[in-house]
């Protein structure tokens, strides 16, 4: 039986997008449970930020075997930026990685992101979505910095949930350290 390539790819894509959508939904369902268990005294934002921190540290550990200092700082930072962008893309975001103003600056951009849309369905404040993403990326850098003895930082310049049209993160070397 000949392969209908268009049908195969369409089915595959549909299933991929469903899976990506489920990532966001699963997180927000879990968030509701965590907030309920934490009790009325706990701020939902604190739960979200703590979760982002713990998940970020764990994701950062996964980055370690894939990063390599051999090709120098510039390539290292570019690869790190690509890892962050790639992880985000696997969740359904459209991301790009660009060189920033100097060799020690990388911009990670995202023009389409399923997370704010999913958050809206669960009544999550948009500012929480922005701050959670920023905290997640910062937490990823914790082990990376210790492991490679690097002073890297990441800063959120723009955020879709803030109505700024795109996400822009600046990954850079903290020259003060």
């Amino acid at each position: 039986m000949p392969v209908n390539t268009e049908k195969e790819i369409t089915t595959l894509w549909r299933n991929l997008h469903t899976a990506q959508s489920e990532i966001c939904k699963t997180y927000y369902r879990w968030r509701e449970v965590a907030i309920e268990i934490a009790g009325p005294e706990t701020k939902p934002l604190d739960v979200a930020l703590k979760a982002a921190e713990m998940m970020g540290v764990d994701i950062g550990k996964n980055f370690l075997p894939r990063l390599n200092w051999l090709k120098g700082e510039e390539t290292f930072m570019l690869n790190l930026g690509r890892q962050l962008a790639g992880m985000w893309a696997s969740e359904g975001a459209a991301t790009t990685v660009e060189q920033g103003e100097g060799p020690s600056e990388i911009l990670i951009k995202c023009t389409r992101d399923p997370w704010p849309t999913a958050a809206r369905h669960y009544g999550v404040p948009m500012e929480e979505v922005a701050l959670t993403r920023e905290r997640l990326f910062q937490a990823i850098l914790v082990d990376v910095n210790v492991f490679f003895d690097t002073p890297l930082k990441i800063e959120m310049l723009k955020a879709i949930p803030r109505g700024e049209g795109e996400w822009v993160f600046k990954l850079y070397k903290d020259e003060s350290k």
Binding site: K61, P65, D143, V146, F147
Partner: peptide, 8 residues
């Protein structure tokens, strides 16, 4: 020093 493990 407290350097994270690369291999889990």
């Amino acid at each position: 020093s407290t350097v994270p493990q690369r291999l889990r």
